[in-house]
Computed example of a mutant assay.
Amino acid sequence: MTDRDCAWLRSVADELALGVLSGQERAEAIAHLDRCATCREHVEQLTPVADGLLCLLPGSEPPVGFETRVMDRLRLNRPARRRRPRAAVGGGGGGEGG
């Protein structure tokens, strides 16, 4: 992991607060925040703003029939199940070794 500086952290702080920073960069940013109180405070100030912005997004429902279409496609893409022949179960002779 490389040592990232404060200027880099400030350039990605908004993405970090929104939770959209890529995995490796997120790990590096969090490692930097563990060492740097100034950057940590900056990100802490951005987090409520990011949360507020996400709350402004309108909710949406999937279109009518969405679930049915998804389930139909899942059934179409599933390979056909093979039936295995069942072994005969029962008493009596007819077997080998007898």
Rank of each mutant, 00 (worst) to 15 (best):
M1D: 09
N77E: 10
L74Y: 11
D51C: 11
T68V: 12
A7I: 05
P85G: 03
V70P: 03
L57I: 11
A31I: 00
H32R: 01
P48I: 12
L21Q: 02
P48T: 10
T47R: 14
R82M: 04
E96C: 10
I30G: 04
R81N: 02
D5F: 03
V49H: 09
L54Q: 14
G98I: 02
R69G: 02
A7P: 05
D72H: 05
G93S: 11
C55L: 11
D34R: 14
D3Y: 10
D5A: 03
S11E: 15
R40A: 14
P62L: 08
L18K: 01
G94R: 05
H42R: 08
L57D: 12
R26M: 09
P62C: 08
H42M: 13
R10V: 11
C36Y: 00
E67N: 09
M71P: 00
E25L: 01
A80K: 15
V89S: 04
F66D: 11
A87V: 12
H42W: 09
G92D: 09
D3P: 05
L33C: 09
V43Q: 01
A27P: 00
C55H: 08
G90Q: 04
L56N: 06
G92Q: 09
G95K: 01
D14H: 10
L53A: 11
R81P: 00
L18D: 06
D34C: 12
S11P: 05
R86T: 06
A31L: 01
R69A: 14
G19V: 06
I30P: 00
W8N: 05
C39H: 02
G94V: 08
T68M: 10
P79A: 14
R82K: 12
G94I: 02
L18H: 13
D72S: 10
Q24S: 13
E67L: 14
A29G: 09
T47I: 12
P79S: 10
R84K: 06
A17M: 00
V12H: 08
C36E: 02
T2L: 06
R73W: 12
P63C: 02
S11R: 06
R10A: 15
R35H: 12
T47Q: 11
V70Y: 13
R73N: 11
T38H: 09
P63T: 10
E15C: 08
G91S: 12
H42N: 02
R83D: 00
R26D: 10
C6H: 05
G92K: 07
A7Y: 07
G23A: 13
E96Y: 10
W8K: 02
R73G: 13
G65A: 03
R35M: 07
Q24I: 14
A50G: 14
L16C: 12
C6D: 12
M71R: 07
L18Y: 13
L33K: 00
M1S: 15
E25K: 09
S60H: 09
D51L: 15
Q45G: 15
L56R: 15
H42T: 03
V20W: 08
R35W: 02
E28C: 00
G59N: 10
T68G: 07
E44L: 13
R40D: 06
L53I: 13
T68E: 14
E67R: 14
